[in-house]
Amino acid sequence: MFTQFITNPNGNMQNRKLEEFFVITGFHDLLPLAVKRAKELAYGQIEMIEAICKLSDKLYQYPPTKNRTAWFKTVFEEKLREAKGDILSYKAKKKHLRNK
């Protein structure tokens, strides 16, 4: 999943894919907030895609009860950190297996 969203020069396809993930998960209205927070925290679109998928899983386990936007912001930032760790470990494992 990680390798199919490598940045391309014009960014069009990648932006469309990111938007599709937000639409599918029902958070299309919070895409601007997500992009802003990800940029502020220095995360890329690969991490954002992974984070929105993880956030969707959490949504079904622990849905927001009062403030959906605040819940989204908190959980999205948490899932961005998890996504970064998952991607780094995936790349390290791939590199390790290639060197064997």
Rank of each mutant, 00 (worst) to 15 (best):
M48W: 01
F22Q: 00
D29M: 12
I52Q: 00
T74W: 01
A83N: 05
N12M: 11
L30Y: 09
I52Y: 04
N15V: 13
I49Q: 05
N15F: 09
P63F: 07
Q4R: 12
P63V: 03
Q14D: 06
R81F: 02
K91G: 01
L41P: 02
K66M: 00
I87H: 06
A38F: 08
T69G: 06
D57R: 09
L18K: 05
F72Q: 03
M13Y: 03
E20M: 13
K39G: 02
N99K: 14
E20Q: 13
L41K: 15
K95R: 15
S89G: 00
L97P: 06
F76C: 03
L33I: 11
N8G: 07
S56P: 00
A70S: 14
K93Q: 03
A70Y: 11
P63T: 08
A92V: 10
E40I: 15
T69L: 10
L88N: 12
F22C: 02
K36Q: 10
N67Q: 10
E20L: 14
F76L: 04
M48D: 00
W71S: 06
A92M: 10
Q4G: 05
K39S: 06
R37S: 06
L33F: 04
G85T: 11
Q14F: 01
N15A: 15
C53W: 03
L88W: 05
K91S: 02
T3W: 11
I52A: 02
T65Y: 04
K73H: 04
A83K: 04
Y90H: 14
F21H: 12
V23Q: 12
A42Q: 12
L31C: 08
K93C: 02
K100T: 10
G44R: 07
K79C: 11
E78F: 04
T65V: 15
L31T: 03
K100H: 12
T7G: 00
L18G: 00
N10G: 04
R16N: 09
L30S: 02
F22K: 04
E47H: 09
I87F: 06
G26R: 10
A34W: 00
Q61I: 15
P9K: 10
K95E: 13
F76H: 04
T65M: 12
G26Q: 07
K100V: 15
N8M: 09
F72I: 08
H96I: 08
I87G: 03
A70N: 12
A70D: 07
K91D: 03
K100N: 14
A70Q: 13
A51H: 01
Y60P: 01
N8Q: 09
L97V: 08
A42P: 02
E20V: 14
G44D: 11
F2H: 10
N15T: 15
E20F: 10
I49K: 01
L88F: 08
E78D: 14
E47C: 09
K79M: 13
W71M: 07
N15M: 15
K66V: 08
P9F: 05
P9D: 03
D29V: 14
K66Q: 09
K100G: 12
F76T: 03
L97C: 06
L33S: 05
G44N: 13
K100F: 10
F72E: 00
D57K: 07
G26W: 03
M1H: 06
V75M: 07
